[in-house]
Design a protein around this nucleic acid. Structure first.
Lengths: 355, 355
DNA sequence: TAGCCTAACCGAAACGTTTCGGTGAATTTT
DNA sequence: AAAATTCACCGAAACGTTTCGGTTAGGCTA
């Protein structure tokens, strides 16, 4: 091997300063040097300072592999991505990755992206990464109603933080907004203005958050004494095209039309806008419209959606708490300290009419 | 700590099967078990098979931390991203990350994305990651003409693979297309059809690949006995807006106009198309146009660029070779075996006129 | 003054691998 | 039949940390 690089075990170690080197240089035991650097209690302040100075002078960098071997922790957390995101999802995905990567370093952890091979079993990958002690825990996003990943990780007792919640009592760290409340609040905003036929264009059947919003929607209706009409609940992907399509479909069919619409997010609401304009209806004069705004990054620079009233909570505010909750959980924090529900805010853009 | 999870050093190890367990179970030494699993030569075939079976039965997973400590290798490679990509860049960035992540697993390596904190020194981050032995080597992309990262890594003898090349003799692994040839070939295509005033809308001043294309451009001109005119070489970002702007600028100024244009990529060429249409010129009747096509993912689903003649080489074909070259280099391969220049192809879309 | 406490330190073991330098037995060569 | 070689195996050291269970010296209390 004619390499000019020195990164082979033998000579690399010659270059590196170890605890033993420091210990020799200072006339202290390796034990005491280690304890000094880790700021343990039974080291005098003077010694600590001397050790720190020597470590700096000799450019000491701890060998993380050795530390990891003895502590049994890799200091690495991961995210498994089973497929390549579409171009449309990419802006969000990039934001997500950047956010996690940036935030995990704040907790002295490294973030590893793992694109699972399509052919291999996704669940097996989680298990393997943990069993080889490569990864301490995972970030899991977009939980489904009965999510196989979450079930698996819980059963195998593999640490993870969930972006969202399951429908049962969560015995794992998570970060979420109160989607029951979002569903309730959006519905209530319309009920309070006298609306009775309220169409909910909601996220996919399988999505856990969409399921929770249904609960809030139904609760608000029940409180107002209105019977739930299944025709007023449509489930679809959260994209503008779906909002458009579903609006047209509902307004084309026989029977009483809704006087108000709840859009699952602002992508859907912009599709609704387009559809209503095409039908010849205006907001809020003919139809009232509310939405939950995740404050997603724009698809393109030219995109400037119509604003609607509703609830709002920036999805990009999730990355910090997700990193924090997983890190602190791995460090042994109480479960209740690493389960966060972020409150949402309300926005008013005059898209609701009193009837 | 009331955690239900078991991933703490003490009890986790109880669960894990180690080489010692296998050795006891089989009545062999730890040495021989290790050698059997690593398929070394002085283990009988029968023993190897017995060991493999036992490893499978007891669900043995090697502790990578221990292996890494003794081998001095982390098995992890990384990419440092100093800033969050813009939404427009995201589709490409996602493609890039997926490609690397997917390909590195083929070489038994894990890929780590590291978004460097803006405030911290980017170069220092490379050094720290290697000195703590967290990362074996890096992928470096978009080298500048005199790239500070590359200079630093070469000086510090930190392994990396470069997507592109420096201007001097490369003493590092890389994957690149022959950009001198791209510049030459695109120019020659036009010269052969009688063009003499050829505008080159090229990538940024600082970009190494753009510099190499200039060399090819000048070489072709020289061979044709045409003097290089600096006004015929403009440098800009590789986006449609720049192509539009620069085309308008050149065609507005005094003096002889170009009869042909070379666009650095197809984004630029689509800007050129727009500009020429606005000016009232058509391709190829009034102006000939060639471009190098990187086959980038579309900005949006609706984008359908006009096709032009020129050279072509899919950027997405780079991720595999980049992963392979870095991996093999880390495994001790000869430098010449991990320096790849991918040939490009030619495409004809009738955008050149004979004059 | 004997006993106890505390501060500051240290030796050795442990984590789970890989690998160096053997060893004895069977087989082949001389 | 002696010498050399090969085969299959093993003990022990090493990688660089952390941590357990001491030990000493000095000051304090009884």
């Amino acid at each position: 091997m004619a390499s000019i690089f020195v990164n082979t075990p033998k000579n690399a170690n010659k270059i590196m300063t170890t605890l033993k080197d420091l210990s020799k240089h200072l006339g202290l035991s390796v034990t005491q040097v280690s304890r000094a650097l880790n700021d343990h209690s039974d080291v005098s302040e003077g010694t600590k300072e001397r050790v720190r100075q020597a470590a700096f002078d000799l450019n000491y960098q701890p060998n993380l592999m050795a530390r990891r071997l003895v502590t049994g922790r890799s200091g690495i957390v991961g995210f498994l991505q089973p497929r390549i995101p579409s171009p449309a999802e990419s802006a969000f995905f990039t934001n997500f990755l950047s956010g996690l990567s940036e935030n995990f370093v704040k907790f002295d952890r490294q973030f590893m992206l793992h694109m699972a091979d399509r052919s291999a079993d996704e669940l097996e990958a989680y298990d393997r990464l943990v069993r080889t002690r490569s990864i301490d825990g995972f970030v899991v996003t977009e939980p489904e109603y009965d999510d196989k990943r979450v079930n698996f990780l819980r059963k195998k007792k593999i640490p993870f933080v969930l972006h969202g919640q399951t429908m049962d009592v969560p015995d794992y760290p998570f970060f979420d907004i109160d989607n029951v409340a979002v569903g309730y609040d959006l519905t209530k905003m319309l009920l309070d203005k006298g609306h009775k036929r309220i169409l909910f264009i909601n996220g996919a059947q399988t999505a856990s958050y969409a399921q929770r919003r249904v609960i809030g929607y139904q609760k608000a209706l029940k409180e107002a004494g209105i019977k739930f009409d299944p025709k007023m609940m449509v489930r679809c992907n959260m994209v503008a095209e779906s909002g458009l399509l579903e609006t047209v479909r509902v307004f084309q069919q026989e029977g009483e039309k809704p006087t108000a619409i709840i859009a699952g997010n602002t992508r859907i609401s912009s599709g609704v806008f387009t559809a209503l304009a095409a039908i010849g209806l205006s907001v809020p004069d003919d139809v009232s419209l509310v939405a939950h705004d995740d404050q997603l990054p724009a698809y393109s620079a030219t995109e400037s959606p119509r604003l609607v009233s509703g609830t709002s909570s920036p999805l990009s505010a999730s990355w910090g708490p997700l990193a924090e909750n997983l890190s602190r959980f791995l460090d042994g924090a109480e479960l209740s300290d690493v389960q966060t529900i972020e409150p949402h805010t309300f926005v008013d853009h005059r898209s609701i009419r009193h009837i």
